[in-house]
């Protein structure tokens, strides 16, 4: 009888937005759990696992991860919304992380940003209409000796002159 249990009742009603955790992902999350003293520690990795498959972390995944790890949904959503590499909204097929920190600022980040923005037709936090690129700012990429720098998916590039953009973007469909 669900109404004898406060802590399960409403989440069943509101969380069922059709997301199911892939069996492999559940297994991977449970394996991660073993690396730490408490299950909650696997939470960030769990979000990344879901994101790897889906491109982003859909609402339903929050409850699914909470359930898998035995952690409150509020706590999982609190974590998911804290970290900038966890996407709680859909992103494009390729994510560009453009370093906006001081050394890149000193070597031309703002010009690069403007050119890139114009070329893609989007600003920070936006995705191109063809879903090809999402553009995001990022903290210092630790590539300051070759600023301005950026990352596309897992690849880091720098220094990037505006003229390099065509060649750079070409490889990412």
């Amino acid at each position: 009888m669900s109404d004898t249990r406060f802590y399960a009742a409403a989440s069943i009603a509101t969380d069922g937005d059709g997301f199911t955790l892939h069996a492999d992902d559940r297994r991977a999350i449970l394996a991660e759990r073993g690396h730490y003293e408490q299950p909650q520690a696997a939470c960030i990795e769990a979000l990344k696992i879901v994101q790897k498959r889906n491109g982003w972390v859909p609402d339903g995944a929050i409850a699914a991860i909470a359930d898998t790890l035995g952690v409150g949904v509020g706590a999982v959503e609190g974590v998911a919304t804290f970290y900038n590499l966890i996407f709680r909204q859909p992103v494009g097929r390729n994510v560009i992380l453009l370093c906006d920190s001081s050394s890149c600022f000193l070597t031309g980040f703002e010009e690069l940003r403007d050119v890139l923005s114009e070329r893609l037709g989007i600003g920070f936090g936006e995705t191109t209409a063809d879903d090809r690129f999402t553009l995001l700012p990022t903290c210092c990429l630790g590539a300051c000796d070759r600023g301005p720098a950026l990352m596309i998916n897992d690849d880091t590039f720098g220094p990037i002159a505006p003229g390099d953009l065509d060649e750079l973007l070409e490889a990412y469909s």
């Binding site: 409150g72 706590a75 804290f82």
Partner: peptide, 26 residues
Amino acid sequence: GEDFGVYGMNNNLYFGRHQEGVLESP
């Protein structure tokens, strides 16, 4: 309670439920 939390960071914090709905705690 477990259906409540703080979301976001810096000065863009949000305190509430993970999704709209009835607060479960009595």
